[in-house]
Design a protein around this nucleic acid. Sequence first.
DNA 1: TTGAAAGCGCTAACAC
DNA 2: GTGTTAGCGCTTTCAA
Lengths: 351, 351
Amino acid sequence: MVRRRQSVTIKHVAADAGVSLQTVSRVINSEANVRPEMKARVQASIDKLGYVPSIAAQRMSGSKSYLILALNDRERTIEAWKAREGNDWVDQMLMGGMLMCAEHGYRLIFELVDTHDDNVQRELKAAIAALQPDGVILTPPHADNPLITDLLTAHRIPFARIGAETRDGAIALTMGDDRLAALAVRHLIAKGHERIGFIAGSREYALSGWRKRGWLEAMTAAGLATDGLCERGDFSYDSGEAAARRLLSGKVRPTAIIASNDQMAMATNAVAHELGMRVPGDLSLISFDNTPVVRFVQPPLTAIEQPVADTVAKAVELLIMANRGEPLPPMPVVIEGSLIERDSVAAPRRG
Amino acid sequence: MVRRRQSVTIKHVAADAGVSLQTVSRVINSEANVRPEMKARVQASIDKLGYVPSIAAQRMSGSKSYLILALNDRERTIEAWKAREGNDWVDQMLMGGMLMCAEHGYRLIFELVDTHDDNVQRELKAAIAALQPDGVILTPPHADNPLITDLLTAHRIPFARIGAETRDGAIALTMGDDRLAALAVRHLIAKGHERIGFIAGSREYALSGWRKRGWLEAMTAAGLATDGLCERGDFSYDSGEAAARRLLSGKVRPTAIIASNDQMAMATNAVAHELGMRVPGDLSLISFDNTPVVRFVQPPLTAIEQPVADTVAKAVELLIMANRGEPLPPMPVVIEGSLIERDSVAAPRRG
DNA sequence: TTGAAAGCGCTAACAC
DNA sequence: GTGTTAGCGCTTTCAA
């Protein structure tokens, strides 16, 4: 066991600059009450010695830990990873969050927690005790789990909830799901579609409701009927297949379908082919999420891009602002996605 | 600014169990010289109070930091992420490394560093000073960068090099690239192919050489000619396209091609289609890496799986063993991949 | 086998 | 504006 000591500490800098530890500390944390010349002198020593504060020591003295914890559902995340279906949200979260953290001298730590387990609180407490993070990012379905949010509140650790309902002004972010669903509807209407079906996602996710509501409201606003045009899946391929089958064999066969995620859209595409329908000739298709795979399906799918990386980056930014006591914008913060046109949408066949 | 204190500290446990801090510390670190009954009593208090040691404090007192740093090339990683071509190695690294870390009470921190920049050392020094990681995982091309390895050696921080040449017994891991390339060759030979082309990867990666060597040796061992059957790309789609074009318009038109990664394989597939060749009828194709996208190409590609997650998990394990002073296996440790059969390989057309 | 004391690197609180 | 002091939670001495 090697006993590792910091090679350059605040003491070295203080000695080199001929000032007290405290002054160096003030410079590091860009506090007030340091004369510019002092500050310059200290900074010169810092640069010269290549000094970087130890986050462990900073944390120990009751200050920040410079650690942000990103919490994800264990079961789902591992399942998605093992399935290797080209879903890249872990990638997006990590890159978006990590890059923003790096900009501010923070680090992102990714952690999996069992939402359904009774041990959520124990697991989370352990992570908090070990890491003392300055902020926590919660994704669905954690974001709506009171066991988690209450615990964080009790520990006074700021947290950002992604894709969850806003509550009491706490940090919350969405990607504008309802507006995006409405956007998809209007895009199809503009192409001439009137019977636009919708495949909803699992009720466990708040955003499933938002997406469905966006579809419903846009349809209603356009004076289009919606009866028999909505089926619910659970975001899995299989559930999408079943929903698509119901939709396409129902009385009011839609000429276009919006699916609440890519897997269900891909399933719908397969079902359509199986039924001898051509996409987009006989059926137009728009999916949600825009994970990499939709570009490789035949036809490449027109999709609603979910700006996961930007959203997580913003969450990090808000958490850091909260740490600094800076004023936060009104919640929820919306990082709106957009419609990416590819080849799965066309005008409906006459008749 | 909230001043956060540990809610349950070693003191609380010591008081609850009626022992000294030291004894609790010994139990936590499962050291010798604690009577079983003492140990049980302390453990009971730990469980009762839900005590978890603060890694900051542990690190401060000269012990471990329980942090493993995974270093990746900034430029490449960001580029791959932005391209969104379905390459999932960040995902694989993160999940493989994180899960193994979690098993041992460690955390994985992902960090990007500019390999080519003169600032590599400065960047790395900063990360080391801030985090004091117990180990570092190096991927290509970092794994071969002496600026990095020398610095880590000087700081006496154990590091694991993935996909790099073994040197002086330091921790190194490979995925058996040469054997896998040979496996692909033999798979094609078994189908009846004799003119098997190879598209090599960038020279900057040691594994490019291994893969090519595996192909070369297997061909030679089978008594097959290799002249004019190898072209070099740089792992990009475009370079694969160019290489495929050269290969397929050369004098010895191959009946099968092995590409050193998926992007170049997909490019080859596209070029073949463009030239009016059918895959696998006129050209069989095997790619390296087996990222999710190859399943969605037409035809789905037979590919060499690279067990990135397992390899990174093993790297973490070895680093933790090194930390504990446990004996390490001979290097390099090989986590061998396998051939995943799909639809891009068939017997060559008679002719 | 156990305990007491010192100190890791840093910042908060207070003095000057 | 700047320096001094105390202490964060833990492990490493060293003493009992």
